[in-house]
Design a protein around this nucleic acid. Structure first.
Lengths: 121, 121
DNA sequence: TAAACACATGAACAATTATTCATATGAAGG
DNA sequence: CCTTCATATGAATAATTGTTCATGTGTTTA
């Protein structure tokens, strides 16, 4: 079997060379695609989706989020950190409490687009 | 400590009751949010993102995808199955080969939206 | 119909990740 | 200051998931 980067590939009878090389030239670089996947990964968890859905309506302190989602405070805090690192949310402190809210309307738009897509099957 | 569904929650001094109940009433049902997360999860893997990126340009047989992405055929097939179950791609058989392509332009749009978002930091 | 080929798939394994538990930080009030 | 409360975080655990390996299915061709 022919190999490529140590990985077995099919006989190149199967490889449509012109298409393959054309696509290879136009591929975005690996880093961009990796970032893209990492970005989506943040949305790919129902706890985080639920948090974002709540924040779509109101800014919210950690404790209230925990109450609404019936989860313990620690779990919420961990997920908030991930959302914040991804710049999807921001926070402001008010005394002992920290209020979280959506970073911008882009996030709303991204959620809406997906909801539409699902609605259309 | 007060409890709710067996999970510890903060004293309700902290819970802003009117906001909490208002948000609770307007939450989409759990199933919808779960589906939404599952949907994003499909995009949240760089192999699948790379496959989709390739299919954005050309329909492609499994073997060529494996060649382009320098991965073995089995790994590609597994990921194609996930993409197909999520209705992001479709396939047609031509003799021994199976050609995969994007299910619709919605997928392109979803990818583009995220790329834009990342570009804006 | 037997062999070769492209692809699919189940099981095992490896890696990633969400949640919990215990504890730390940081602000407010006594 | 010392305590209390809201939140953050490190480590351990449990669950999920991507890749590999071996093999199965379906199609063409000799």
């Amino acid at each position: 079997m022919p190999e490529q980067n140590g990985v077995e590939v099919c006989e190149f009878l199967c490889a449509h060379e012109s298409v393959v090389s054309e696509v290879r030239e136009h591929m975005p670089d690996e880093d961009t695609l990796f970032e893209l996947a990492e970005f989506y990964k943040v949305f790919g968890d129902s706890t985080r989706i639920r948090i974002l859905t709540v924040l779509c309506r109101h800014e919210m302190c950690v404790c209230d989020l925990a109450t609404i989602l019936s989860m313990n405070q620690s779990a919420i805090s961990h997920q908030l950190r991930i959302l914040k690192q991804a710049r999807l949310i921001t926070s402001r402190r008010e005394g002992k409490q920290v209020f979280y809210s959506l970073a911008d309307d882009h996030v709303r738009h991204i959620l809406d687009t997906a909801i539409e897509h699902l609605a259309e099957r």
